[in-house]
Design a protein around this nucleic acid. Structure first.
Length: 425
RNA sequence: GGAGGGGUGGCAGAGCGGCCGAAUGCGCUAGUCUUGAAAACUAGAGAGUUAAUAGCUCCGGGGGUUCAAAUCCCUCCCCCUCCGCCA
């Protein structure tokens, strides 16, 4: 949720909202509604003060005074009720509008459409394609069963099988241990959440069409554990000394992928369901930009340890979600496509979500809204996709990245058929 | 799924139409005492909004009755106990 006062008083604030391709009419209507609301609120509060005074007096009045005052209070009540009805109508509209207004971009965000991104850095070199692309390789190894997935659930669903599953858990274990060193507490959150949770996390109403809904129970499947992690401290006013509060959530993630028809249809690069370890930080507003860079550094650390060639881009204003003030994508070189593709990303929401969830930080001088940040540690489907091209050997075997070997029973290579493995016949 | 009980300040817990933004205890802050701490004693403090120590709002959320609601009614959510079912 934006700061309503800044919108009308600070022209730069407004400009940075409009950079997200917001209709100016929305902002104008909101400002108008906000003004009406403030004016009416003053009137209503004055009336309430009079009414409250009357009520107090009635309790102390003598019997005949009482009669008169009761009659007067009755009139006042009728008057006030009319005004309060008006006020609640305006407030409903106010709320509807403010929920549609995105967080302004940070001044350093490049403005423009999706391809106006800025390359922050490039690490490692691009290299030529392997024998098999990730989709063929997944089939070759017996790791990805797309056809069966499509049969039982539809397109963009797949079974993950065999050593790929061991690889998934190795990735998770390794990532969790690395994040523990960085002070992140692991969490397995609920993946079904209420509508209010989606709204407070900054996803509703704007991204509603990307989310699976369980109508019968009025619950929604999360697209990232960011959502339940963002709700973990809702309504709390937390001591400043406990910051930053760092969590890493492991969960399955569900995305409708609406509007991506025909895009990335091979393999498990883009699927409706995948597992992910997500970093989430509640930060003191004083240093949230530092923490933003720390989260990026961890994402890079993970990429480097897995041997990826990658680049970091600062996403353009038109590519930012409603809640993010700034977002970095870490894009890894995908040789079969000869291009960099997104593996992880991180965002600083500033106080956008904490305003909705009413999460504050307090010290001797009072309290303010906290900042929330999130970043992908490892998205399994994507991670394995990139690894299948990076670690694929000429003979078709798979060279397990060194950091994962301890979590794979010390093995160094994986094969499509391994006679020592009784499930591979 | 069925039956009952309950949600009040950081925590525990009283209040059950007006004197209640709320007793009391613990915890917290400051002071006295002490070399220091503890104990004891004294004083102080709920949150939000606002320029404001004014006003308004907040006793799980929403709605209603009333001049007046923490207190009565409806509804939703959550927690606990018992029965049933279950990984």
């Amino acid at each position: 949720m934006i700061d309503r006062k800044l919108l009308s008083s600070d022209s730069d604030y407004r400009r940075r909202i409009e950079a997200k391709r917001v209709a100016p009419e929305l902002l104008d209507e909101f400002i108008k509604t906000d003004e009406q609301r403030s004016e009416l609120l003053v009137i209503v509060e004055e009336k309430r003060a009079v009414k409250n005074k009357f009520s107090k007096e009635i309790s102390k009045a003598s019997p005949d005074e009482r009669e008169i005052k009761l009659a007067q209070a009755g009139e006042l009540k009728v008057e006030l009720e009319k005004l309060e009805t008006q006020l609640s109508e305006i407030e409903a509209r106010f709320r509807e509008l403010i929920l549609q207004i995105p967080n302004p971009i940070h001044e350093t965000v490049p403005e423009g459409d999706e391809d106006a991104y800025e390359i922050i850095k490039t690490v490692g070199e691009p290299y030529g394609p392997p024998k098999m692309d990730h989709a063929d390789y997944g089939e070759h190894m017996g790791w990805v069963l797309s056809e069966q997935g499509a049969q039982i659930s539809g397109s963009r669903f797949a079974y993950l099988a065999g050593d790929a599953v061991r690889l998934e858990f190795a990735l998770v274990q390794w990532t969790l241990s690395l994040l523990a060193q960085h002070g992140f507490m692991p969490i397995v959150p609920p993946v079904l959440v209420r509508e209010s949770t989606m709204e407070e996390a900054g996803f509703f109403p704007t991204d509603r069409n990307q989310v699976y809904e369980l109508e019968q129970d009025n619950l929604f499947l999360v697209g990232t554990s960011e959502v339940p992690l963002s709700g973990l401290h809702r309504g709390q006013n937390i001591e400043a000394r406990t910051f930053p509060i760092k969590y890493c959530g492991f969960s399955s993630c569900f995305r409708r992928e609406a509007g991506t028809y025909g895009k990335d249809t091979r393999g498990i690069f883009r699927v409706h369901q995948f597992d992910k370890v997500e970093m989430f930080v509640y930060a003191d507003p004083k240093n949230s930009w530092e923490i933003f860079e720390q989260i990026l550094a961890i994402e890079e650390e993970i990429c480097q340890a897995l041997g990826f060639s990658y680049r970091v881009i600062s996403c353009a204003s038109g590519d930012l979600g409603p809640a993010a003030a700034k977002k970095y994508d870490v894009e890894v070189w995908l040789p079969s496509e000869g291009t960099y593709r997104e593996l992880t990303s991180c965002s600083n929401y500033l106080d956008f979500a904490s305003r909705r969830g009413n999460i504050r930080i307090k010290d001797e001088n009072g309290s303010e809204f906290v900042h929330t940040l999130n970043g992908t540690a490892i998205a399994i489907g994507r991670g394995i996709t990139f690894l299948m091209e990076k670690a694929q050997q000429d003979d078709g075997s798979f060279a397990i990245p060194e950091v994962l070997q301890p979590f794979m029973g010390g093995e160094k290579f994986l094969y499509s058929k391994n006679p020592e493995r009784t499930y591979e016949k």
